[in-house]
Design a binder for these strands. Structure first.
Lengths: 357, 357
DNA sequence: CTACACGATGTTAGCGCTAACACAAACAGA
DNA sequence: TCTGTTTGTGTTAGCGCTAACATCGTGTAG
């Protein structure tokens, strides 16, 4: 064996100093109620004096459970996910659990590696982003028999739990909103859809709404752009130049939309008089730019909080009321698009989008 | 004992299926070169067939080391730290290490809890933000005898390793830059300095530069504001209204500065003609707003990358050339401030700031 | 006064893996 | 041929902790 590091304080050292057995120390630390006041005091003093920090690796092996929860997000650069992580962190910190974070970079293979690593750490539960996973990832998760929460999605069959909203519905609703403001020729700038079911659902929502509402729709009204202000600016210029008839451009995220807005400002393109701009996410900046960005507010923090709550509940053996939690959304009308017109006499728009395809 | 979970595949199951001993399986997975091709193939097939995932908790206990590195950042909401984490993640992912992330919310007590939890997980190394830690945190770290990297700072005595730049020097340099553009009355909006040595160093840099350069300096030229566009907007309005003589306002981060710039836009305050604005960080948005924001570019990603590289090197037993790595910075002149004037005949400004106080 | 419950603490036996050493077979050099 | 070395694999003994059961003392009811 690896010779043990003699300098490391073990539970045994604390026990000797306090004049009790190791199990009593273990109990004093984990279930203080089971140890009498006086003994506990002695033990805590010994802990203090030695600077003892319990070895959770050994504890995890012996008890067959850890206080670690793994979470995989596509990227940490997008502040969207930062809010979700904050939601998780707040709950897990209060529950004394550790968050093991990994970023997949929108790669299913990397997600698979991360899931394997987290299962290797014997994480008590896993939080993933989206509903698309490799076959092997699914196999791992099924065999692991731990709570798994897929976030930012609610449609389809969950592996276990699911917390989010319908990207399809939101996107559909935004197009409906723009249509109700009188826009008939609406362009769409998608995020890259590769290995990103949320982006793909937003694209579908746009297409189906455009069709259902009888808008002018051409494939050339669509573009795809990676997540950055710069890409938003570039794709916007390309789009308005090649499709001058467009009345509004709807972007799959606020960063692209704001990039476009700032570019329009530079080029003297009047927003919303010449063309409307809409985003998706309602980031802080969306209400600060001039004019303010019409967008969709999403329950970013809530997704993380609820996901973590479902997990802590499940781990404590409490039943959860529902395996799928839809947290909804809210269209935010601001100055980058014309305000909606008062309802015409016969509102022939579908009342609500279908729940995906 | 906790009865073992019979459904969990162990190394023994793989070994039986492959017709070898467990140690051979262990070696095949960790040091493939030590096992002959044919045996390894048999073992890998058995791994595949059973869906075996090595129990790193058991492995960590037996070997007395883990592939986990802990990192504590103040907040994940600030995209600044996101870049640093990306730097770490890229290196650790390539090295097959796991990142255990915690957010302290600028609380030394919370940092202490996180450090204790991470040491409890027997993390192989720790990455902290800043140089200010509680007494107990320092005691933990000294006893732990693992590599510890403090980031975003280089001054003073490190616990072990340190990667960043001098916030004092950067701030000093920015004020010097503004002065060289002819600004004499420069306001400063600090981030909250409580438990934030970087913010405090930036404030000191501003004050000392103002004094050294003979600028007009009044305590009422200073404000403090929490990290958000909105706070930047509000504090800017307050400052220009109560101190109308101000020629420029220098913000301790770009988010505050951009919030101010957008507010100025709304109120028709001409930037930079009426008043100059400068930031700190060079976020993506800084080059997109109109006019572009004068700011300081920091090696955000590099800090994370270098910190992680120092750790992987140290863990592999390679010596590191230096315990402290200063990654420098770069002033970025854009449109929110007047351009620097050509050097006057007698440049009596100090050539370089002192390395802190 | 005995029997029994209960609360507090201790003893024992692993959890699944790896370090160190052991050993057998194959090979090389004298 | 013998010896030493190298290579591949196995045996043994934990790593530090906790679950389960054991034990001991005290209080309480009959």
């Amino acid at each position: 064996m690896a010779k043990r590091d003699e300098t490391q304080v073990r539970m045994e050292d604390v026990a000797k100093l306090a004049g009790v057995s190791v199990i009593t120390v273990s109990r004093a630390l984990r279930q203080p109620g089971k140890v009498v006041e006086q003994t506990r005091t002695k033990i805590m003093q010994a802990v203090e004096q030695t600077g003892y920090i319990p070895n959770l690796v050994a504890g995890g092996l012996a008890s067959q459970r850890t206080n670690v929860v793994g979470a995989v997000i596509p990227t940490i650069t997008n502040s969207i996910f930062a809010d979700t992580i904050r939601g998780m962190s707040d709950v897990f910190a209060a529950a004394g659990m550790q968050l093991l974070l990994g970023t997949s970079g929108y790669s299913l293979l990397r997600e698979e590696e991360l899931v394997a690593a987290m299962l290797g750490q014997r994480a008590s539960a896993l939080i993933l982003t989206g509903a698309t996973h490799s076959k092997r990832t699914r196999a791992y998760l099924e065999r692991a028999r731990i709570p798994v929460v897929e976030t930012w999605v609610v449609d389809q069959r969950p592996i276990d739990l699911r917390v989010g909203f319908s990207n399809f519905d939101v996107s559909y609703a935004m197009v409906r909103h723009l249509a109700s403001s009188g826009y008939r020729r609406i362009g769409f700038v998608s995020a890259p859809v590769k290995a990103n079911d949320r982006a793909e659902a937003r694209l579908r929502g746009y297409r189906e709404a455009a069709r259902d509402l009888g808008l002018t729709y051409k494939r050339s009204y669509e573009r795809q752009a990676a997540f950055s202000f710069r890409h938003g600016a570039e794709v916007f210029v390309d789009l308005v130049e090649s499709e001058p008839a467009l009345e509004a451009v709807y972007f799959a995220n606020d960063i692209l939309a704001i990039g476009a807005l700032l570019e329009a400002q530079r080029r003297g393109i009047a927003i919303p008089d010449h063309i409307g701009i809409a985003g998706f996410d309602d980031v802080d900046l969306a209400s600060e730019v001039n004019p303010g960005l019409t967008t969709v507010r999403l329950p970013r923090y809530e997704i993380g909080r609820v996901a973590a709550e479902l997990i802590t509940k499940t781990l404590m053996g409490d039943p959860v009321p529902s395996k799928i939690v839809d947290l909804g959304f809210q269209i935010i009308q601001r100055g980058t698009t014309r305000p909606p017109r008062p309802e015409p006499d016969a509102p022939k728009l579908p009342k609500r989008a279908r729940a995906s395809r």
